[in-house]
Amino acid sequence: MKRMREFDDILNKCIDRVLKGESVEACLAAFPEHAAELEPLLRTAVDTRKAAAILPRQEFRQRTGYEFQAAIRNMKPNKSGFFRRQLRWVTAVSVVVVVLLAGSGTVAASANSMPDQSLYGVKLFTEEVRLVLTSSELEKAELYTKYTDTRVNEIIKMADKGDVEQVVKTTERMNNNLKAIAKLIQPVGEGDIAAEGVPEPLLVAPGTAVTPTPTPAQGNTTAKAPTATLKTAPVPATAPARAVTSNNSKLAVTAKADVTTKANAQARLNTTVSNQAVKNTQDLQETLKTAPDSVKQALEKAIEVAGKGYEEALKNTAQKKK
């Protein structure tokens, strides 16, 4: 009995080593007096280890990761303090580096995917990861601005294809992004750029059913598209129209960053949002002229949502500026 227990222990030690990738021979050399008894069992253990080394499909891994993130978001996480926020940031880097390294090929391949394609979930997940990793409100707003631009392009592509369902879903995602921009840049007090009211990145899982709000009745499908009443924010003479991501990383270092830098970054964001508002609304209206009739109602809704969303965001940037 005692001998059997001892052998069970030795066998277990060898299995641990085999599971870690060590060779059978190395284990046998460590326990020569049991080698004859151990060898056939360890060979079987190696076969079993090989049979159990089943890898999940990369696409499944990415999709599930995205849906897991969405589920976490729905849990309404507790607010965290400054130190916890820093710890989260550090840990997030290690987690996401793993995620990105594991699926870098898929992530790259997903960058240009459209809502009706299988890799689109990966694209949204990648956006989500970047938002999680971004601690500065201003940088988050810039990312949301960029992603809104992406959503508009997707709406146009989907409208061209006559895919009403995807136009509606993508409009909802665009609307979420615009709401996030408005919330992130809403005035929260003089000079305060990083403390209160940070909305978590918004997630709409691919395939999630979206219930659009009723569209105003249209007499016919060629009726005039809703016109957005956009106020273009003043553009600083030196601010390049779309250079939004290059120099802002310094802002994330501390909430007490240089006031001038913050003002410049804010001004650049205003410029980007206002330029994008005009251009994207025009692009959507242009698309409406040539889009299939079946998709026009959804597209008009998208134009209306874009108009209101950009207007709200610009209103907040204007108030913040005062």
């Binding site: 890898l55 999940p56 976490i72 849990m75 507790n78 965290s80 989260r88 987690v95 995620v99």
Partner: peptide, 16 residues
């Protein structure tokens, strides 16, 4: 405490 990063890390470590 529903920390997103912690939940994600546990997920990554155990998923496969």
């Amino acid at each position: 405490q529903r920390d997103q990063v912690a939940l994600t890390q546990l997920y990554e470590e155990n998923f496969d």
